[in-house]
């Protein structure tokens, strides 16, 4: 079984995330780049399957700027067998369509059984890459899974939707995406960190994949304007002296909120 895990490198949500007001692009200097937490959960799912099933190959795939190598090494240290890093100037500010097209081209080169992604990233928040990949790779998608079972030839799981919970299954090869209900990623140990240095890390460009960044046939999404909202200021803060509940009630009534 070959499992491809997609991890996105994002600005740390604990930091001060900024957009460049001129270019509209994420300001990569402003905050530290980390593997999106949901990507670590996706990797954990693959690794725990690999732990229990000998002969499982776990390949990490990311499309990210050049500097992301250290972050990818972390995924290798956690236990992925190899990594593919797609990096190209032409991918700066790539939209969903170009991102999905490029990732699909990289996946197509592998004989994959299962692609695991996060349900939604913490920066772009598109939550569409998994479905787009399924369409481009001509395989089923089973998205937003809060539990997953992988067996020979079939992947299945629970899929919470607005009105209830579905039990879904798909024949492999397939693309699945997971929610944060799944376990968080393991910590790399010393052995893993040392081993990671010897694991294969392939760096690919757009031309390696036969992708044109500004294909005239494809419409792309463009940012027209970006404005920063002024930060919120703190209001009044009182210390409870036994009557704070009463005071809060007064405040809500005065503001017609109760």
């Amino acid at each position: 079984m070959k499992i491809v895990v997609l991890v996105k490198v994002v600005p740390d949500t604990y930091g001060d995330r900024k957009l460049n007001l001129e270019t509209g692009l994420a300001d990569r200097e402003a905050s530290e780049a980390v593997v999106d937490e949901i990507g670590e959960r996706a990797l954990e799912l693959a690794l725990s399957y690999a732990d229990a099933n000998e002969g499982t190959e776990v390949v990490l795939l990311t499309l990210a700027p050049e500097g992301a190598t250290a972050t990818i090494r972390k995924g290798l240290a956690m236990g992925a067998g190899s990594a593919i890093h797609v990096s190209d100037q032409g991918l700066r500010g790539a939209d969903l369509g170009l991102t999905a097209g490029t990732l699909a081209a990289a996946i197509r080169r592998l004989e994959f059984d299962l692609v695991i992604t996060g349900n939604i990233s913490t920066d772009g928040s598109g939550g569409m890459i998994p479905a787009m990949l399924a369409e481009l790779l001509d395989v089923p998608h089973a998205t937003g899974l809060s539990s997953v079972e992988i067996s020979d030839g079939v992947v299945s799981g629970s899929r919470p939707v607005e009105s209830g919970v579905q039990q879904v299954s798909a024949n492999l090869p397939a693309v699945i995406s997971i929610t944060e209900a799944l376990p968080s990623g393991r910590f790399p140990n010393f052995k893993g960190i040392m081993a990671a240095k010897k694991k294969p890390l392939e760096v690919l460009t757009l031309s390696d994949l036969g992708i044109i960044a500004d294909d005239p046939e494809a419409a792309s999404s463009i940012m027209l304007t970006v404005t920063e909202k002024p930060p919120r200021a703190a209001g009044v803060k009182i210390i409870d002296e036994g009557d704070a509940g009463e005071k809060l009630a007064d405040f809500l009534v005065e503001n017609r909120l109760a």
Binding site: G97, G126, M128, A131, M132, T143, A219
Partner: peptide, 15 residues
């Protein structure tokens, strides 16, 4: 999101 993503990928529309 699944619908929008798959449709956009099929038709090469922007999202």
């Amino acid at each position: 999101r699944d619908l929008a993503g798959r449709y956009a990928a099929r038709s090469r529309a922007a999202v």
